[in-house]
Amino acid sequence: MARIVGGLTTSHIPAIGNAVPREQELRNDPYWKEFFAAYPPAREWVQSVKPDVAVLFYNDHGLNFFLNAMPTFAIGAAPEYKNADEGWGIPTVPSFKGDPKLSWHIINSVTRENFDLTTCQEMLVDHGFSVPMELFWPNYSYGNMRTVPVQINTVQHPLPSPARCFALGQAIGRAIESYPEDLNVMLIGTGGLSHQLDGERAGFINKKFDLLCMDKIVNEPEALTRYSIHELVREAGAQGAEFILWLAMRGALSHKVRKIHSSYHVAISNTATGLLVLENAA
């Protein structure tokens, strides 16, 4: 049977996509030093648990999906996912391998639990997906990893509630654990933490709220599912609502988890960055 080996969360700021190819030189750069210093322990952990597949919860920022047809929850079911020009100059990266058989198992399983996902046999993945893969598999070394992208709408309100995203994660966790193949599955939740790009409140960051989220998500994630989207926007900023992606990932882990590593840093670009490594506790 498939096993969930643990979960990672990380911010996916586009500026990181530009910086990652220059990580060696930026390790001593005052702006980047603290950010990059947080990642080696997470990478070592990734190598140690030998994942075969990554199920990655992220949000599309207008590369694959537009307002003509905007799914609340979409899942890739393709043998390959390509990255492409996002318009503002982040480098395009090598494509990602899919695992359509696992994708369809998840689709069938969660639909029986009343989660009706949009299924995508072609799907471009943007920085929300690629930046975390580049961070955990440096120098684009993700070539052997298979992936299942789970895309959650954070572009057009109404967004799905934190509680709904957490419950979707729980259903996906059950689906993975009922998959008959002998596979190590890693979960990744991307985005956040607090930031706001638009309006006169642009540049808003809420360290106190971020640290509360990073703490509660480990042992008490249900407490965070009580927030409404509106409260998340108020506390974490308009784009800080991406925290629902962390909650979806957390839902797929077991009730009890162990924190292996964490880091919080203000800020890269306009965004407070957070990193968490969690393992299922027996």
Partner: peptide, 19 residues
């Protein structure tokens, strides 16, 4: 998606009306 009195200063929710 939200009532006027709930609006957050300097923040625009991109909802159905805006879309």
């Amino acid at each position: 998606t939200m009532d006027i009195e709930d609006q957050i200063p300097g923040t625009y929710v991109f909802d159905g009306e805006a879309a």
